[in-house]
């Protein structure tokens, strides 16, 4: 019987693996994903006034002091979330700049609060969610600053 240790066997098996694992596998997974779950597969894109403004998973930069600001020191540099503690601190600034009531700001923070351990752990909010809410509810204040 033929022994499988000539150099042609590893070369052929490597090429088969390359096609199966490196091309077919990601290709088939991409096909299924695009057909069955296009929203997630394309990066969970989010819209404002019918315009796509990027991914809800990625932090956006905000300069106007009437917006909530993301943190810029985290591991990925793209962290879309801030702690509720941080958001509450920023609410005071936003109130001073825009005049929006603290009660309203605290309300939307509460509405959007998530926890690092599902229902306990550190409470946090997504910055973009808060800012979209502000821009939609106070167009007179934010129109000049938004897209």
């Amino acid at each position: 019987m033929k022994k499988s240790n000539s150099l042609s066997v590893p070369i052929r098996i490597a090429l088969i693996s390359l096609v199966a694992c490196g091309l077919l596998f990601p290709g088939v997974v991409t096909g299924i994903a695009q057909l069955a779950m296009p929203v997630q597969a394309n990066g969970s894109l989010i819209s404002f006034n019918n315009t796509t403004i990027g991914s809800s998973l990625i932090a956006q930069e905000f300069n106007y002091s009437g917006f909530f600001h993301p943190r810029n020191d985290s591991a990925s540099g793209l962290d879309p979330d801030i702690t509720v503690q941080n958001a509450t601190l920023q609410a005071a600034r936003i109130h001073n700049v825009t005049g929006i009531s603290i009660a309203y700001l605290d309300g939307i923070i509460k509405e959007n609060t998530k926890y690092t351990l599902f229902f306990f752990g550190t409470a946090y909010v997504n910055v973009l969610d808060l800012n979209i809410n502000l821009a939609e509810h106070y167009p007179s204040i934010y129109d000049r600053y938004t897209l």
């Binding site: 997974v29 991409t30 994903a33 695009q34 997630q40 597969a41 394309n42 990066g43 969970s44 894109l45 404002f48 315009t51 796509t52 403004i53 990027g54 991914s55 956006q60 930069e61 905000f62 300069n63 106007y64 917006f67 973009l128 800012n131 979209i132 821009a135 000049r144 600053y145 938004t146 897209l147």
Partner: peptide, 16 residues
């Protein structure tokens, strides 16, 4: 988690 082959896309973000 995304899964696509459409290239990277640049979007204008919420703030002008």
């Amino acid at each position: 988690v995304p899964q696509s082959l459409n290239g990277y896309t640049i979007f204008k973000t919420l703030e002008i």
